[in-house]
Design a binder for these strands. Structure first.
Lengths: 255, 255
DNA sequence: AGGCATGTTGCAAGTTCTTGCAGGATGTTG
DNA sequence: CAACATCCTGCAAGAACTTGCAACATGCCT
């Protein structure tokens, strides 16, 4: 049963699929069928149409984007990390149309950006070009934060990026993490990226962290924000692993 | 049975629908029929009218805004344009290691960015996220210009982008073009993109235009810079077609 | 006022499109 | 080689679309 009567026309679905393919996301038929609430046959026909126009290449079980956007992020994203996928999907619930949302860089956030539906009244603010391309492709108004590009994280950093972030106000901020620990808080491996992430958190009224269980209990080199400044933790970890974070005030969303 | 006597005229409904489409919202017929208190046939006729004027695209069950959230860059780059390829390759000669180079958005420039070799001492400055990702992947130091993203051009535009560009200085600037004409100069279809391109040209000591023959002699809506401010034209056109540009002082590089 | 033209709306019959399912073919995995 | 999943094809039910038409409201002219 179609959740949205319009998005679930062939054109609507295919337009969404096209955008995801352009963002470099793989298109598994079974998952898409469940997501859209249609049978795999219908998705198969959609992929057939998209393949005919050259947007994707069908493979067994689904399809792959025919044009790989770019190396650094995409190569990491190809290693299809089931956990990151689940976390990204779970975090989608946090975003509602009409919100102003800050999106960090990183693979988890990039996955989330690729999954975003069209949000006609939302605004995305991000220092990560890969994220900006994806949200723009989804038809969401996007503001790009400029600055020196960090080779590792694939996001803009530096004083100009921090200033640009500080000059904005958002309802929600989604951050990735190199490490998250109850007492030390959210941490990142690179100082310049940590500074931008911190500015993003400070400019938002609510902050959520998206990270898989491997980062929990770790301390990366530079603290971004203490846990007191965080509101939500979206992760695939068990409730035992997240208990300590719940005690310091975080709302836990388990993927 | 009209619930609101004023709003429920064809013009009234259609102006509401037009506004929603412009905001990017999908238009499901059944829901709209109930909302306005009319039959789906009436809504269908409204959508028919809106489609005739090009505001929406009708799909089964309703309509989608025609302001296609289609990622302009990636889809267009899919159409492997041999001319653009040659032009991009030819323009590579202009770039030497150690330079500070500004790169515009657009498909031609994006192709060039993908072809760039590692330049350990160069610096790329660009408002186009797709370009930034490519140059970063090539291992080139990159500065991203931030700002509101233009859905069509896939680049940052607006006051902040222009200011950020003006605050930098480059040796070379490579611009794409929607139109190039000897007297009118370089022109673009969108005003906000034209402003950024103009700022890029002004911030660089040398400016080159990359464009295929189809754009020569065309005038797009907004002038970016007059030909007097341009230095090099890289194109696939014949020498007859480029003669007029040579006369106004441009160096011609034929692909 | 009456009559006519125009425009809008809802309804019905016929057509087209989409979708899910069944059956057989094909490819993959152990 | 066998078991299994995925694929293609054809088909039928149902939803949505198109077309034509009649009813009703509105405005204009005589």
């Amino acid at each position: 049963m179609p959740s949205d009567p319009v998005l679930n026309s062939p054109e609507g679905r295919q337009s969404i699929l096209r955008a995801r393919a352009a963002a470099g996301a793989p298109l598994p038929m079974a998952a898409l069928a469940e997501e859209f609430g249609v049978s795999v046959d219908t998705i198969r026909r959609d992929l057939l149409a998209l393949e005919a126009e050259g947007a994707i290449q069908r493979v067994r079980g689904g399809a792959l984007p025919v044009m790989q956007p770019v190396e650094p992020l995409v190569t990491r994203m190809r290693t299809s990390d089931a956990a990151a996928h689940c976390i990204a999907s779970r975090a989608l619930d946090l975003i509602e149309d009409g919100m102003v949302v800050m999106l960090d860089g990183g693979t988890t956030i990039a996955r989330l950006a690729a999954k975003l539906p069209p949000l006609p009244h939302a605004l995305i603010i991000t220092p990560a070009p890969a994220v900006a391309v994806a949200t723009l492709a989804a038809g969401i108004e996007t503001v790009l934060i400029g600055g020196q590009m960090s080779a590792l994280g694939g996001m803009a950093v530096g004083q100009r990026a921090c200033e640009a972030v500080s000059a904005t106000a958002a309802d929600l901020c989604l951050l990735g993490a190199c490490g998250l620990e109850p007492t030390f808080g959210l941490s990142a491996d690179r100082l310049d990226e940590a500074a931008v992430k911190a500015a993003m958190g400070a400019a938002s009224s609510r902050t959520a962290v998206l990270t898989d269980r491997s980062k929990l209990g770790r301390r990366a080199r530079h603290r971004v924000v203490p846990c007191a400044k965080l509101d939500v933790l979206v992760t695939d970890a068990s409730s035992e692993e997240t208990a300590a974070f719940h005690e310091v005030g975080l709302e836990i969303r388990c993927a």
